[in-house]
Design a protein around this nucleic acid. Structure first.
Lengths: 305, 305
DNA sequence: GGTCACTCATTGATAAAGCCGATCATAATA
DNA sequence: TATTATGATCGGCTTTATCAATGAGTGACC
């Protein structure tokens, strides 16, 4: 067995196609086929069932592929380790960020990071928590910025800041009269939410304590981005909850849209930088967290660690 | 990089000696030296510092070695996976057992396992929890039977049974008159304990709610095995706590030694079979747990899972 | 139903690598 | 200073991975 063989196996698993996998591995298809056949012979187990044109992993194959990914991740860690030891702050950092934070936070962070970590260019991946977290666990991302708790045992988190929620509503809304709004003031029927999968959707629905929140008359309005959600709100279709950074840094049209703080100590979410417990890049990530906090606008409740 | 190279690295780390490591890997010393030099060149980092005659891992080396172990463990898992898929109940099971359980439980388990799992011979390692658990995590043992909770994230546990504690004392002891003994009845000064490191020592000390338990007049009597502890007790030097299996299955001299149940629902310890969460041998281990419960003597509180 | 496109397996030649035995260099030891 | 232990270096041998070309099986389509 060989790390290269395992790479081939994982590539075939990912592409479900020997030829494409071979291309991805920069080898010829016969080479890849041969090595996989050799490995299957060595293990005495068929990893892929080539039935007709389709390539599918067998049951044993699925398990083997999972372990192969672990082995490759560990070997990648060795390479990262080596580079990190030559210079801890050198080498790109692949960072996942959720969509309700990225557009508002990154404009601050990217220039600061480019300045303070010139040899560690940030590679950004914007996607929802459920998509990003597995990539971190697999080692395909070095870290991620998310707004939910993550109790996966292989992960560790660095607290960044607490982000209060604001209520956004059209300027002619009745609640505009209040200085501060309680969750109970909001009519769940008029609460506008993001599409499924965004943690902000769940957080807003839970804060307003209503499982059917967002199921009202406006349920057919589907916003998959916070900006769109705010446009819908500004158009007078209801109210919504916005995290602070989006209020401070977003391009909210203050003529048509009014924001008011949401009352209560629980009316905020904790934003964290998560990474694998044994990531070789911890040093750089801790530095990144420091830079990130420093780059935050004033009025954000920054956290220690 | 290569799995074989990683094997060489780990071997050198383990032996702190190139020649011995080479022998352990069944290669010549020049081969091993060459491969390690090649790897260090490839990574651009010195893994071992050869200062004079001593071989020591550098800081970077320590990290690299840890990741190398992970990679090798994963590749071993692939081999195990393959065999387990050819036949889940075939292949030796390496089992760690703590010393206060092994001598009493194994006489029941070994014949039953040999009967029901004829193709999965048990390889036993008897040692204390702190020594066994890391071996399970590293994959050097397939599972372990322990009597404490283990919250290491990479481990999973299968409940086996609850084992009540009994009080053992010389037959002329005052407490013999009682049918059941409360922990508070026991004078901590006369409580005899096993040597450090045995979980039974901690459990007994905690049950009797006395941090200095075992520090009394008899503190210079050191028993590193339960049998010895019982002999000391029988000789009239004090009282001690014994787990049920040792009472039922041990060779307690009932003329000189009397046992009474310890009162209270908390006066028992939970015995578990722990294994790595993704152990390829789960199927066989679940079967082993089943066999194990079935082999237990009556009167033991067997658990479901 | 025959042809075509696609896909994985096979073959034989070539280049790379891993390996060994012998030998060398160096440092601790007597 | 001589000796021993230990890791590094060297030249030749063997194994292995690799490629291009080709073969063989399968599904799609006219």
């Amino acid at each position: 067995m060989n790390l290269r063989d395992l790479q081939y196996v994982v590539a075939v698993a990912d592409h479900a196609h020997f030829g494409h996998a071979a291309t991805a591995c920069n080898v010829s298809q016969p080479t890849l086929s041969g090595q996989i056949a050799k490995l299957e012979l060595e293990l005495g187990v068929e990893i892929f069932s080539r039935v007709g044109r389709a390539v599918r992993a067998t049951d044993a194959g699925e398990q083997i592929i999972a372990h192969a990914r672990r082995a490759l991740a560990a070997s990648n860690d060795i390479v990262d380790c080596a580079r990190a030891n030559r210079d801890p702050l050198t080498g790109r950092l692949r960072l996942g960020v959720i969509p309700t934070i990225a557009p508002y936070l990154m404009p601050y962070v990217l220039p600061a990071a480019a300045d303070k970590l010139p040899n560690a260019p940030l590679v950004l991946v914007e996607d929802m928590t459920a998509h990003i977290v597995p990539l971190v666990i697999e080692g395909k991302l070095d870290a991620a910025i998310i707004a939910t708790e993550e109790e996966a045992p292989e992960l560790q988190s660095i607290n960044l800041f607490d982000e209060p929620f604001w209520v956004a509503m059209p300027s002619n809304h009745a609640l505009v009269a209040l200085k501060e709004i309680k969750a109970s003031d909001i009519d769940p029927k008029t609460l506008l939410l993001l599409t499924d999968g965004h943690c902000l959707r769940d957080q807003a629905a839970e804060l307003c304590n209503h499982p059917q929140a967002g199921q009202g008359a406006m349920a057919d309005m589907r916003a998959s981005s916070l900006e769109t959600l705010l446009h819908i709100t500004a158009a007078g279709h209801g109210v919504t909850l916005v995290p602070q950074l989006a209020v401070e840094c977003g391009r909210v049209d203050t003529d048509r849209l009014v924001t008011r703080p949401l009352a209560g100590t629980l009316a905020s979410r904790r934003v964290r930088l998560i990474h694998r417990r044994r990531s070789p890049r911890v040093t750089a990530l801790i530095e990144l967290a420091r830079i990130l906090r420093a780059a935050l606008p004033d009025g954000v409740r920054k956290l220690q660690s």
